[in-house]
């Protein structure tokens, strides 16, 4: 009841311009943790932006090697994109299940996220192995160096995310939906969704724009 009253007041004066409110004290641990992780994610995005900038500068420097349009297979990239997008969705379902403390849907959502992430990694690894086998490794040209470092860095993040995901499932299994486990879960969900945002940049800039070069 008191909750609806404060919500109503907050709505009428959302930025508290008119009234001097009593200081609410430090934010809850959940907010502090998630906010700190959000700042880390933004710094991670800044790091990726350096790789993007390097790729944008070097995408034409093929040193007689293959151009982007000769090595990119758009079918594979489309499957990877759909995998990551669906995994973002299932990760969201898992976070909802964690909030309502439903173990079955939590495990199901996380398992689906894990499988989709592994499919993504398998396709990417096959693409890299295929390129290296054809002699188009990262040392072939500046373009391929930039390509492997940008896409490989994203792939490493996804690998770390899969490990983290399995850790979260184990923690929920062993400790249940404790407040600290739920804080780690919200950080994991932020991480996984942010990886999908970076992949949007990767498939647009590297694969689709890069095919036109």
């Amino acid at each position: 009841m008191s909750m609806t009253a404060t919500a109503g007041r907050a709505h009428a004066d959302p930025h508290h311009i008119g009234v001097v409110i009593e200081h609410p004290g430090p934010a809850s641990k959940r907010i502090v943790t998630a906010y700190g992780f959000w700042v880390f994610l933004l710094s991670d995005i800044v790091m990726f932006s350096c790789f993007f900038a390097a790729y944008a500068v070097l995408s034409g420097q093929t040193a007689g090697g293959p151009k982007g349009s000769e090595i990119f297979e758009q079918g594979n990239v489309a499957i990877e994109t759909v995998c990551l997008l669906l995994s973002s969705f299932t990760c969201g379902m898992a976070s909802i299940a964690a909030d309502v403390r439903n173990r079955f849907w939590f495990y199901l959502g996380m398992a689906a996220t894990c499988v989709l992430g592994l499919i993504f990694l398998a396709i990417e690894f096959r693409e890299f192995a295929d390129l290296v086998a054809r002699g188009y490794g990262p040392s072939r040209s500046a373009f391929l160096t930039a390509f492997f470092s940008l896409v490989g860095c994203h792939g490493l993040h996804v690998s770390a995310g899969v490990l983290w995901l399995l850790t979260m499932m184990a923690q929920v299994f062993a400790k249940g939906f404790r407040a600290d486990v739920l804080r780690r879960m919200i950080c994991f969900a932020l991480f996984w969704h942010a990886l999908d945002i970076i992949w949007v940049g990767v498939f647009s800039v590297v694969y689709l724009l890069g095919s036109g070069v």
Binding site: M3, T6, R30, I31, A34
Partner: peptide, 27 residues
């Protein structure tokens, strides 16, 4: 425990209080 009321900030990634159906619909 998991959700702050409106007077506080929201953690990034957290939603305002909705029913499960509305949250799933958002996704």
């Amino acid at each position: 425990q998991t959700h702050m009321h409106a007077e506080h900030d929201l953690a990034p990634g957290d939603e305002e209080q909705h029913s499960v159906g509305v949250r799933i619909l958002g996704y």
